[in-house]
């Protein structure tokens, strides 16, 4: 009896904290590791896609078809020296790339890969994603400011204005989707697309979402924050080695994140295109991955195709085209839903 009294708390501790804790850690690892591999091979895919579009071969030396190239790049960056410029705000300078990278990882906590396959199925999943993606700007601003360099600072200012501007239209795009779903839960959003993917009724919003996602992730043709032809390297001019690598990884992880968000909001997440054999033999996560790849290919395609926007054109597009149009579309969608009594019942 005495020893029971002593042991019981231990058993409780084991059951209440240690075990769930270990499971959560395992789940996190299960998400992070594939994600990191995906990020590494996204860089490879980008180089290959660009190469093919420009009639080149792309990386083909390290390993078969150059498949080990990303690892070699990572190793190279890892071996280099981290240089902190004189007059830089040291702590912030180091913190900025970590922030970018961590935020890009953090968002994956709510992404449902399949029905029920999600780390945290929270009620306000979309808002969480939106919030995390809106925080991405801090990594860049802090990097620009902490570098104590003109180019970096200009890049940071550009990115702050750019990301805040395009967040507005992304927010309105999300609202149109939410109007059709009646829930902020990401799994519910995917399930609501069982009959028809939202990309069909909301096609203009998907286009706006995609373009805004380009701006939000600082991808070309909106890569002004780093615009190397005018700002040397933009906000990461002063970064080297692992700090640079973290920015790089963060940027690509963000691309994957925005693609995943696009897949969930518009392309039916893990759902197959038609709920018939042989489509529904393929497991959900595969469909999800395919859809992400589809959107990602769009990112790369755009990069290979379009020249960089001028800054005033970028702002004009965001505020004078997307904002009014998406506002109009929100009103239109709401009006249609009310007029035909299609409002989802929560």
């Amino acid at each position: 009896m005495i020893c029971w009294n002593g042991l019981e708390p231990m058993v409780d501790f084991w059951q209440d904290y240690a075990l769930p804790g270990a499971i959560i850690v395992a789940k996190i690892v299960a998400i992070i590791i594939p994600l990191l591999i995906a990020v590494a091979y996204l860089t490879y895919a980008e180089r290959k896609v660009l190469a093919v579009m420009q009639l080149r071969r792309g990386p083909n030396v390290v390993g078969p078809f150059g498949l080990l190239q990303p690892l070699a790049d990572g190793l190279k960056l890892f071996m280099k020296e981290t240089i902190v410029p004189a007059g830089a705000s040291r702590a912030l300078f180091i913190m900025a790339p970590m922030l970018t990278f961590i935020l890009a990882m953090l968002a994956w906590a709510v992404i449902p890969v399949d029905a029920g396959w999600v780390l945290s199925d929270i009620n306000v999943g979309v808002l969480y994603l939106f919030a995390i993606s809106s925080l991405g700007v801090y990594g860049i601003i802090i990097a620009g400011w902490a570098s104590n360099s003109k180019y970096a600072f200009l890049g940071a200012l550009r990115s702050a204005a750019q990301m805040v501007s395009y967040e507005v239209s992304i927010g309105l795009v999300i609202i149109t989707v939410l109007l059709c779903v009646g829930s902020l839960n990401l799994s519910r959003i995917v399930e609501a697309q069982k009959t028809v993917w939202f990309v069909i009724p909301l096609l203009p919003m998907f286009v706006i979402y995609f373009i805004s996602a380009l701006a939000e992730t600082n991808r070309s043709p909106f890569d002004l924050p780093e615009g190397e032809s005018e700002l040397v390297g933009g906000y990461f001019t002063e970064y080297s080695s692992m700090t640079f690598a973290l920015f790089f990884l963060g940027e690509y992880a963000n691309m994957i994140l925005m693609s995943a968000m696009g897949a969930i909001l518009f392309l039916g997440g893990w759902l197959p295109p038609f709920d018939i054999a042989p489509f529904n033999w393929v497991p959900g996560p595969i469909w999800f991955a395919l859809k992400i790849c589809f959107v990602l290919f769009g990112f790369l395609w755009v990069r290979a195709t379009f020249p960089r926007f001028r800054y005033d054109q970028l702002m004009r597009l965001g505020w004078k085209v997307f904002l009014p149009f998406s506002l109009f579309y929100v009103v239109l969608v709401a009006g249609v839903l009310v007029a035909f009594d299609w409002l989802p019942t929560p």
């Binding site: 929270i122 306000v124 808002l127 939106f130 919030a131 809106s134 702050a160 204005a161 990301m163």
Partner: peptide, 25 residues
């Protein structure tokens, strides 16, 4: 949770960015 997310989106994601923007410049 809704308020929490709004706080992050509105204050951290937008208002504080503009603060920072102004203070830096």
């Amino acid at each position: 949770e809704f308020l929490a997310m709004l706080l992050v989106i509105v204050y951290v994601g937008a208002v504080a960015v503009l603060f920072l923007f102004v203070v830096m410049m």
